[in-house]
């Protein structure tokens, strides 16, 4: 038993330290409950109002997950279409790289204005955010072929179609999984940011509403659920990536 405790301490002393500092800050700074809730109050709000947390949490998770998969599908489909045309690749890859080096979340207000304050807009934003990594990584993966394989396929007299099916597409799979892992956290974050800015529903909206009502325990409770949603999405995508890599490399 002491062994386990020691291991746990070795791993989590940093997290523990942060919690201690937080508590110290609250105690020494004598912050009152409206500014800084006690952890217990946060738990009470979470347990006391499961419905509102569940409803909004599920909505955000569904929007983020659905938008993520849709955006990934779009991105990879366009990357695949581009594989057949060097001009299209040459035109789109630099653009996509520009878009991945700018803060895409800054587009949220623009998209919100274009499509209106609606759940569809949240979805559209997640799709846009997930599109770029999927496109960039799938394109790169379809070009990072195993050494010698291109020569081999040519010598074996492979048609373009069979080269695509047996070589290019499977070669892109690990990169596609990297894109999924990278896009998952930003999908969740941008879904919540969109909800926050438009203020209709979802976890992002709950932050806004809680801030407006000075309901700090609600704001912190929402933080807990938001973190859970993010961790779930990230863990799932990481697991998927590992499983695929084991099979693929």
């Amino acid at each position: 038993m002491p062994g386990i405790l020691k291991t746990a301490f070795n791993r989590y002393w940093g997290v523990l330290l942060i919690l201690v500092l937080w508590q110290a800050w609250v105690t020494i700074g004598e912050l009152n409950a409206i500014v800084m809730p006690q952890p217990a109050d946060v738990v009470v709000d979470l347990v006391g109002n499961p419905g509102i947390y569940l409803k909004n949490g599920v909505q955000t998770l569904a929007l983020a997950g659905g938008g993520l998969l849709l955006g990934m599908a779009f991105g990879s489909l366009i990357a695949i279409a581009c594989w057949f045309s060097r001009l299209a690749t040459g035109m789109l890859v630099p653009l996509a790289m520009i878009f991945s080096s700018v803060p895409v979340v800054a587009l949220i207000p623009v998209v919100a204005r274009l499509l209106g304050y609606d759940i569809k807009t949240v979805m559209a934003i997640v799709v846009i955010v997930s599109f770029f990594p999927a496109f960039v990584f799938t394109s790169a993966g379809m070009r990072a072929l195993p050494p010698g394989s291109e020569d081999l396929f040519q010598v074996l007299g492979a048609s373009r179609k069979s080269r695509f099916r047996h070589l290019v597409l499977p070669a892109a799979v690990p990169n596609w999984m990297i894109a999924l892992r990278l896009a998952a956290p930003s999908a969740v974050l941008s879904a919540m940011l969109a909800e926050f800015l438009m203020g209709q529903s979802g976890l992002g909206y709950m932050f806004r509403a809680a801030a407006g009502d000075f309901a700090t325990e609600r704001a912190f409770g929402t933080s807990v659920i938001a973190t859970a949603v993010s961790v779930i999405t990230f863990t799932l995508s990481q697991r998927a990536e590992r499983a695929v890599n084991e099979r693929w490399r």
């Binding site: 800050w25 912050l31 500014v35 800084m36 956290p185 969740v188 974050l189 919540m192 940011l193 926050f196 992002g204 932050f207 809680a210 801030a211 700090t216 704001a219 912190f220 929402t222 933080s223 807990v224 938001a226 973190t227 993010s230 961790v231 990230f234």
Partner: peptide, 14 residues
């Protein structure tokens, strides 16, 4: 793994 939007209330307080 904590999305930055979830840290915002904390930062605003602290």
């Amino acid at each position: 793994s904590i999305p930055s939007i979830a840290l915002a209330p904390l930062f605003i307080v602290l």
